[in-house]
Nucleic acid binder design. Structure first.
Lengths: 155, 155
DNA sequence: ATAGGAGAGTTGTAAAAGCCAACCATTGGA
DNA sequence: TCCAATGGTTGGCTTTTACAACTCTCCTAT
């Protein structure tokens, strides 16, 4: 495998194509995985659980979503009894978000099936390959933060 | 790096988390990347260009989309003058898809900015790492097809 | 031949998820 | 004290998708 410019280009193309394909499939797959809990809500709920006491604005920023979108998602989650909103005593603009007992449970069950799916899918891989793949993904995602905001928005 | 079960689990967790993170951000990022060409259509157009003469069903299968979704997307692309449909002479059920001249051009310009984004993002990577990452992604995505249909829908 | 099933696409309908803009309430300085 | 900034909600609208019912074409087994 020579380190030529051509090889590089080719790998880049493959990465671009496959990541895109993955992104396209992800939604469909995730939607089926747990129809009870509306995909996006799951994502947000997961984040709320992760960083207990976060605010709607945090979610919007982290996922590049509009305020209004998050607002409605939260409303849905609350209606489903999965999250609670407590007004911040020190600042009455803020709503502090927490998962309810039911929310924590729903999350656990969803995470379980997700984990099982991955486990099955990657069953054939060697531990070494898994480790390297994991490392590459980490590296790829970590690169996202900085860069020139105006220029190319990396996928 | 010992080949223990613990290592394996850890890698799995990372992969799961990072792929999910990628998927969540992908849409927002992709939407901003090239607002002219309706994002989803871009994906399909790209595939059509890649495998000239593919059918709508191929697209649906590859991206896990419903027939109807693809049908409408194609219709849009055709209305925009970016793809042409030719009836297959040997089988009148089939519509063979080809990009038009305009389609090829639109694609080229979009691909250019996407490619630039990836190039920038992966600039630091060695050719070897890129090659391996590409291979892993291929392997990961390829695994999707078979598996037990009823069981866990892998992300 | 021919009836029935499988495959490719289209259309009707409904829902999810997103954005933008206008809006209200609170807060923390000039 | 007034006013810009911050957090959140609501209204209106578009895009993207799925499911189901339907048409048309092809193939195969009787």
């Amino acid at each position: 495998m020579p380190d030529t410019a051509g090889e590089r280009e080719e790998s880049l193309d493959v990465i671009e194509r496959e990541l895109t394909a993955f992104a396209r499939r992800a939604r469909a797959a995730a939607a089926r995985l747990h129809p009870e809990l509306p995909l996006v809500s799951y994502t947000l709920l997961s984040h709320i659980d992760d960083r207990q006491g976060c605010r709607a604005t945090d979610l919007a920023a982290h996922y590049m979503l509009d305020k209004s979108t998050v607002s409605r998602q939260i409303a849905t989650l609350e209606k489903l009894g999965l999250v609670e909103r407590h007004p911040d005593p020190t600042d009455h603009r803020i709503q502090v978000l927490h998962p309810t007992e039911a929310g924590t449970q729903a999350l656990a069950s969803t995470q379980a099936s997700r984990h099982a799916a991955y486990q099955q899918r990657l069953a054939e891989w060697t531990a070494d390959d898994l480790a390297r793949f994991a490392e590459y993904l980490l590296r790829y995602n970590a690169a996202g933060g900085a860069s020139t905001p105006g220029t190319g928005t990396p996928l």
